[in-house]
Nucleic acid binder design. Structure first.
Length: 322
DNA sequence: AAGCTTCCCAACCGCTTACAA
DNA sequence: TTTGTAAGCGGTTGGGAAGCT
């Protein structure tokens, strides 16, 4: 049995909205608001439309301050960078671009920006003499399939290129006075996380029962824009980083790019992790976060585990999230 | 000018999440 | 704690516009 329909599809109009319908919906909402019930709204106004359709029309087209028309270079840059950092979480990306809707951005990405990016990749690839043939091939495939963003959200693909240890980069190497917590998912089926105290510079590793059991990682604050953990064997788990098929440097960390994040609403910590970000710094977090060179943020809350950031999560909520 | 293809974007679909009862 | 319902969200589709032959 399928899901019950949200409305009587036989009696609702579908397809493009007429100017009259737009005017009805707009004037009603401007005067009365939505009343918190989109389903009931079309009946109140006498529109033969599904409530969901009304909501979408209002949010994507009718509501005030919607920006239509071409995207600026700055907007392009923000979209690209956020996409590569957090994937297709359009609502989050849209929140950083006032006046733009998630639908707008999604369409723009799918129809233009993605191709623009691919074109740039191909061009650079042709002129570049760096790297082996294999590396170029990997890069080409990754760009063409646009697997790079999905890699960020999909551990199975991800682990082809990224280390098994997964330290969170949303730490500020320059702010040792702040206590930061890092949650780490590894390929190990047991859920592990780091609890990192920037005062002592000592990361501590906990198991899924929240018991401290290993202290096998070292922190290297002298490498602010690189993965700076080494494991117990003294290996940098990010050593594969340089083999990443995508041209990190093309969107990578540089002063100009990072500075652009200063204008983001609420700062990077807000869009990536919302209120869950532990950084208490009043200054811009953007100055120290490289959203591209970073791996995707591990879940800052247990709920985030279920949002597709990682493939598997403990069946029970670890006590530290409770 | 006609026919065909590609592009673009508004709208839809259905799954997930949130929340009230 | 469970269940039902609406909102939120991201993927997909359909059709008009634009471009090409």
């Amino acid at each position: 049995m399928g899901r019950a329909p949200c409305c009587d599809k036989a009696n609702v109009k579908r397809g493009p909205w007429s100017p009259e319908e737009d005017a009805k919906l707009k004037s009603y909402i401007e005067e009365h608001g939505t009343g918190g019930n989109w389903i009931a709204l079309p009946h109140k106004i006498g529109l033969k439309r599904c409530g969901k359709s009304c909501r979408l029309r209002w949010l994507n087209y009718l509501r005030p301050n919607i920006k239509h028309g071409s995207f600026s270079e700055e907007e392009d840059h923000i979209i690209c960078t956020l996409y590569l950092s957090i994937g297709s979480r359009w609502s989050i990306i849209a929140a950083q671009l006032p006046g733009r809707t998630d639908n707008d951005i999604k369409n723009y990405w799918n129809t233009k920006l993605k191709k623009k990016l691919m074109g740039k990749q191909r061009k650079d690839q042709q002129s570049s003499k760096r790297g082996s043939q294999i590396k170029l091939e990997m890069k080409r495939e990754a760009v063409e399939d646009l697997k790079v963003p999905s890699l960020c959200m999909n551990m199975n693909l991800y682990q082809s290129f990224w280390p098994t240890e997964f330290p969170l980069m949303l730490t500020n190497p320059n702010q040792h006075q702040h206590h930061q917590e890092l949650h780490v998912k590894t390929q190990d089926p047991t859920f592990e996380h780091y609890h990192f105290d920037t005062t002592s510079n000592q990361p501590e590793l906990f198991n899924q029962n929240d018991e401290k059991h290993i202290s096998s990682v070292a922190y290297h604050p002298q490498l602010p824009n690189t993965p700076y953990f080494v494991n117990a064997d003294g290996m940098n788990p990010f050593q594969e980083f340089n083999n990443f098929p995508f041209g990190i440097n093309e969107f990578g960390c540089n002063a100009t790019q990072v500075e652009q994040f200063d204008g983001l609403v609420g700062g990077l910590d807000n869009f990536v992790n919302g209120s869950n970000c532990r950084s208490s710094s009043a200054e811009s977090t953007a100055s120290w976060v490289d959203p591209i060179a970073c791996p995707p943020p591990p879940p800052m809350t247990y709920e985030d585990c279920g949002r597709g950031l990682l493939q598997s999560c403990p069946s029970e909520q670890p006590s530290r999230f409770q």
